[in-house]
Simulated scan of single mutants.
Amino acid sequence: MDWNIVTEGFRERKSAWIYTFQKVDLIKVCERYNIKCSDKDTLDELRKKISAVIKETNKEETVDDKNKVSSGSEFKMSFAGTMIELFKKGNNWNAFEKQLGAFIALNNVEDSKKSALLITRLSSAVSEELLSVCENVDPLTLDYAALISKLSTLYEPKGNEHLSRFTFRDRKQKEGESIKDYMVALRGLVTKCKFGTNETKGQLKDQLISGVKSKTIRYELLKESDKTLDKLLKLAETVEMALAEMNDDKKKVIQENKQVEDIENNEVSSVHAIWNNNQGQQRKYYNKDNKVLIHQQQDTQMIKTQIANAVERRIIQRINVIFEKNTRVD
């Protein structure tokens, strides 16, 4: 018998599923949902009773999401927040348990209904395994804590405590990983180490100091190692931010120095261009026999003036670059 089909049918207010169940199964459905019935009822009578309850529920849906199911009984048909997904084999049991606990707290689910809610959120395969460990005891008769214990035995990972602690202590901050992301990774690993509640924070502090990649951040943390974990984490993030800003400034300086070098190289190139141009002007006035110079050499003072003007322009450009740099710093 698949209770998920039953739960889905009541939630969606559909009754087609009733005709796929046998009499003994429908009696169990009536018992769970407080629908009056007896062993003397025929299969058709049971179907009619359940169908009538589903129709009544559909008609009497109210703003506060409570419906009259049978004489004097009520149950909540909708909840605050999104209904959690079914727990299936291979899913993370610890995550599911915490999510279900939060859902129960959010909706103020009564203790008498917690077990039923838990069972409805189990897949068919998981429900079968639960039945096998209950040893002929109806899971609905067990309280919520007992069901959680049995399911934890089946699906909670059996980790190696020593291996988990080794993995935790071996975790170092990766290249490009922020302090915040590094701490998130450490918190995820430390949950498997089974340290005491008070010991966990101390272990996180030690690993933060020893595993951080920057020597500067480690030095600052060691100076304040008597502080709480939260304060050390805030200090590490502050130093990390300061180092990042310093690296940005360093990159700007390198870029500006490259601009200055380019200007200096251009100065030399300009001088060479003027000189080569002058030499070319001299060579083109030799006659074919290359014996008689028919053009007088250009005035030497003119060449000096051209070179001086070129150098002056490059120097002015360099001064402007330095001036812009100082203006940005101010």
Results as ranks from 00 to 15, higher is better:
Arg318Phe: 02
Gly90Trp: 03
Leu221Pro: 00
Thr197Asp: 10
Val321Phe: 07
Thr7Gln: 09
Ala244Phe: 08
Lys59Val: 14
Val268His: 03
Glu161Ser: 11
Thr228Glu: 13
Ile54Asp: 01
Thr305Ser: 10
Ile54Ala: 08
Ser149Cys: 10
Ile27Asn: 02
Thr153Leu: 09
Asn277Thr: 03
Lys49His: 11
Asn94Ser: 09
Thr153Lys: 06
Met183Tyr: 07
Leu232Ala: 04
Glu128Pro: 05
Ile274Cys: 00
Asp181Lys: 08
Gln259Asp: 12
Leu147Ala: 05
Asp248Glu: 14
Ile254Trp: 00
Cys37Ala: 06
Ile307Gly: 01
Leu189Gln: 09
Val253Met: 12
Asn67His: 12
Ala308Met: 07
Ala125Leu: 14
Lys194Ala: 09
Ala52Leu: 12
Lys114Asn: 06
Gln298Gly: 10
Ser38Gly: 08
Ser115Trp: 03
Asp65Leu: 11
Lys158Asn: 12
Leu100Cys: 04
Ile274Val: 12
Asn265Ile: 05
Lys205Ile: 02
Gln99Asp: 14
Asn326Lys: 14
Leu140Lys: 10
Tyr155Ser: 02
Thr153Ala: 03
Gly159Cys: 08
Tyr182Val: 06
Ile209Glu: 07
Glu261Met: 14
Gln207Cys: 07
Ala146Phe: 05
Thr82Arg: 12
Asn34Cys: 11
Trp93Ile: 06
Gln306Trp: 02
Ser214Val: 08
Glu324Asn: 14
Lys88Tyr: 03
Tyr182Pro: 04
Ser270Val: 04
Leu131Thr: 00
Gln173Leu: 03
Asp138Leu: 02
Ile148Ala: 00
Lys150Thr: 01
Ser178Asn: 00
Ala310Phe: 05
Ser51Val: 08
Phe21Arg: 07
Val137Phe: 01
Cys134Asp: 01
Glu312Asn: 12
Asn309Gln: 13
Glu128Asn: 15
Trp3Ser: 09
Leu232Val: 00
Val6Leu: 02
Pro139Met: 03
Glu97Ala: 09
Leu208Gln: 04
Val53Leu: 05
Gly176Met: 04
Glu61Pro: 04
Val63Ala: 15
Lys205Gln: 00
Ser149Val: 08
Thr120Arg: 13
Lys291Gly: 08
Arg121Ala: 07
Val109Tyr: 05
Asn278Val: 10
Leu117Trp: 01
